[in-house]
């Protein structure tokens, strides 16, 4: 579904992403793990279009995205949940959700999307008229994910969904991610520092370091790999 070839990008003079090639197959959950500062977020921002690609191709369903603005990428069926809690703080939960469906604003899809969101995260229904800025961190993360689903994407990108969230909520969020993948047949591309959690839900994984891909393999292989274990899983057998 997504194929990245020799991608180079960065900020100003510094080159952060130094030639990355990878692939995400339709229907899978694919994750990129790696340490802080490896360039995972920069890579995601480049794929979504917030940063221009300096070189290389980003093929989505065999079409090069590099010439498109983020808005167009949304219309092509890509949604991203960036790092941090990017809610619209002074809008209500419901208004936030509605904005998620900005590109498909017909009443029917809207209602379906809202029902789906409330189904996945019942707490959002309880808080629907509350200003999003007043939600807890975990609730905001749920809202952001639910909002990304509102545009009915084929391809969902999640940047560090576990960042700064209470452990019991992390589990719930990842369970939901898995559910979205299975029930909605949605392809999910995930960046995570919390490698064990990510690899447990993913089918395929890439290890990124210093702006390059160091390893790749099925999630199971990576979970069992000694180097990965030592570096990212925080345990040595």
């Amino acid at each position: 579904m997504l194929e990245v070839k020799n991608l180079i990008s960065g900020y100003g003079k510094s080159e952060v992403i130094r030639g990355i090639s990878l692939e995400v197959k339709e229907g899978q959950i694919v994750t990129i793990i790696g340490p802080n500062g490896a360039g995972k977020t920069t890579f995601f921002r480049t794929v979504f279009g917030f940063l221009p690609a300096r070189q290389g191709e980003i093929l989505f369903e065999n079409e090069d995205l590099t010439k498109y603005a983020p808005t167009v990428r949304v219309q092509k069926g890509i949604a991203m949940v960036p790092q941090g809690r990017n809610v619209f703080p002074f809008l209500t939960v419901l208004e936030n959700l509605k904005l998620g469906a900005y590109t498909r604003y017909d009443q029917k899809t809207l209602q379906e999307g809202i029902d789906l969101a409330y189904g996945l995260f019942p707490v959002l229904k309880e808080r629907k008229s509350q200003q999003a800025g007043t939600l807890s961190g975990g609730e905001q993360q749920m809202l952001v994910i639910a909002r990304a689903l509102m545009s009915r994407p084929k391809f969902l990108m999640l940047d560090e969904p576990s960042l700064g969230i209470a452990p019991f909520l992390i589990k719930e969020i990842f369970r939901t991610i898995k559910a979205i993948n299975e029930e909605q047949k949605m392809t999910i591309f995930l960046v995570e520092q919390n490698a064990p959690v990510a690899l447990r839900v993913a089918e395929w994984g890439y290890v990124m370091e210093g702006g390059q891909i160091h390893m790749s393999g099925s999630a199971q292989e990576l979970l069992n790999d000694d180097r990965v274990k030592g570096a990212y899983l925080g345990k040595k057998d």
């Binding site: 917030f50 949304v74 619209f88 904005l99 998620g100 590109t103 909002r147 545009s151």
Partner: peptide, 11 residues
């Protein structure tokens, strides 16, 4: 409220 998040919405 947030330009970048607005872009995420396809705005």
């Amino acid at each position: 409220q947030s330009r970048e998040t607005a872009e995420l919405m396809g705005i």
